[in-house]
């Protein structure tokens, strides 16, 4: 049996501000990880990534990141790196956690 596919989202950095953004169902970009559209198969993930790659006039370096679904059925970061990207640095209250 094929290994179960881990759900993924597409994330990138905003071209202008440089912060983390997430690819949404309407093929736009949100600053909120929970808004990301989730791919539940390799095929869906590949399609999402190529759609995101068409938007390099808005973002830099789209890539797939593994995700877990939260109780509210919105995707949450799995890896600590992705969790940090949703918040900002830990030494100052800067970045997304500060609402910036």
């Amino acid at each position: 049996m094929a290994r179960e596919y881990k759900p993924r989202i597409v994330t990138a950095n905003d071209l202008f501000e440089g912060d983390a953004v997430y690819f949404t169902a309407s093929h736009g970009w949100s600053r909120d990880h929970g808004d990301a559209v989730v791919a539940f198969s390799q095929d869906a993930a590949d399609k999402l990534l190529s759609a995101a790659n068409m938007q390099q006039d808005q973002v830099v370096g789209p890539y797939l990141a593994e995700t877990v679904m939260g109780d509210d059925n919105r995707p949450q970061p799995l890896h600590f790196r992705e969790a940090f990207r949703t918040r900002g640095p830990s030494n100052y209250f800067h970045g997304k956690q500060a609402g910036a």
């Binding site: 950095n13 501000e17 440089g18 912060d19 983390a20 990207r85």
Partner: peptide, 13 residues
């Protein structure tokens, strides 16, 4: 940009 010292990091340039 790299030639001019500009990197893209985790949260910003």
């Amino acid at each position: 940009r790299l030639k001019n010292g500009v990197y893209l990091q985790l949260h910003a340039y």
